[in-house]
Design a protein around this nucleic acid. Structure first.
Lengths: 95, 95
DNA sequence: TACATATTTCGATAAATATAGAAATAAGAG
DNA sequence: CTCTTATTTCTATATTTATCGAAATATGTA
């Protein structure tokens, strides 16, 4: 069971997580490639420091927009379709 | 004709404008009451200073999410359905 | 164990944000 | 012209944010 939180607050939280172009790009890549992404891959593609990517990954994860799977040293990021479906239906389609 | 801007950047801008609970509330009231709102009305309803409301109004307007109509000293805010339709289809329905 | 790779955390910093109150501006009413 | 009402702008402030590089942590390999 989730903690009760006003829908407005939750939406603001989601939008906050998505209010940075690079994060939108990460979501877009995840969606269009329909695969997982690692920190270092994104770092190369978007030309930003790994630590910055890690920061963005964390923000997306915290908002519930993505999931993480660990394999050895590597962490794979994927979309959390449920959150999009629940709070931002059709958004992924419109990307 | 609009200035060229990457879609990711525009989306980030829209999300940024929506990343504050009171702004979501303003959008929600505008949508559900299907009417216009003034600064002072919102100030009373949400219990925040008029100058703060004015700041939020400006942010929403700048992102293209709302329109303004002036009548005497009063400014009426309404939704800009086009922007929602173009960039956030179905979002208003899901509010 | 020592080294390599991937990620995270920490420390610092510059920029942006939300907020309020005070002053300024806009417009109508007496 | 003065007063009232509505909004905006200005000033200040406290908080959050995005960013990087360096150090720390995690995990696998020689």
């Amino acid at each position: 069971m989730d903690i009760e939180i006003s829908k407005e607050k939750k939406l603001a939280e989601l939008f906050s997580a998505l209010s940075e172009p690079n994060r939108i790009r990460i979501i877009k890549i995840l969606k269009t490639s329909d695969t997982e992404l690692t920190c270092s891959q994104v770092s190369k593609v978007l030309q930003i420091a790994p630590s910055t990517v890690s920061y963005h990954f964390k923000a997306l994860r915290k908002a519930g927009l993505t999931n993480t799977r660990r394999q050895a040293q590597t962490k794979y990021l994927s979309l959390n379709a449920k959150t999009f479906q629940k709070y931002l239906p059709h958004f992924l389609d419109s990307l």
